[in-house]
């Protein structure tokens, strides 16, 4: 398991390759990548991501450990960036490796659902119209109920 909270960009290809290297017991790797999207209201200039150093790492570790107890996984990777990001930049990724795809798919969805509402990150959109904190969606909280 690897958890990385970082300001620097990451290379999806390199990370995925390193994640799978040396495993011969893995039949499925699922990756999800979050990308900075334009604001619904005005063209986005910057997406700022704040987090709670210390708690972020422990919350992500707990979520990843929970995924490992619920599904049969060979490995889990979570990378999440913070700081100022440009539209189109990659914000975060999760990768799950398993013998079979069902475990890898489900665990990746579980990680994303929990990460969105339980890991202490906050997004702020900067547009020509000003800056605005992104509000949490009720459906994101509801998504936890299915697990």
């Amino acid at each position: 398991m690897r958890i990385s909270v970082q300001e620097a960009p990451f290379d999806l290809g390199v990370e995925t390759k390193e994640f799978t290297a040396g495993h011969t017991d893995i039949g499925a790797v699922v990756t999800f990548t979050g990308v900075v999207r334009d604001s619904d209201k005005a063209p986005l200039e910057v997406m700022e991501i704040e987090h709670y150093p210390g708690m972020t790492e422990s919350a992500l570790t707990e979520i990843a450990q929970e995924a490992q107890t619920r599904w049969s996984l060979g490995d889990v990777l979570v990378i999440h960036r913070h700081g100022a990001l440009q539209p189109g930049e990659m914000i975060m990724m999760v990768a799950t490796a398993a013998r079979h795809r069902k475990d890898a798919f489900e665990a990746a969805e579980f990680l994303m659902d929990y990460l969105k509402s339980r890991a202490p990150f906050w997004k702020r959109e900067v547009t020509a119209a000003g800056t605005e904190w992104v509000a949490a969606k009720e459906e994101d909280e509801d998504a936890l109920n299915r697990w």
Partner: peptide
């Protein structure tokens, strides 16, 4: 609210707490 970096709630006791954090609902991912 988080007490000592664990999510908690407003009814929770503070006995022994070293760090309390307040923030809006999280919006990661």
């Amino acid at each position: 609210v988080a007490i000592d970096q664990e999510l908690s709630d407003f009814d929770a006791p503070l006995k022994g707490a070293r760090e309390v954090a307040f923030f809006p609902p999280m919006t990661g991912g």
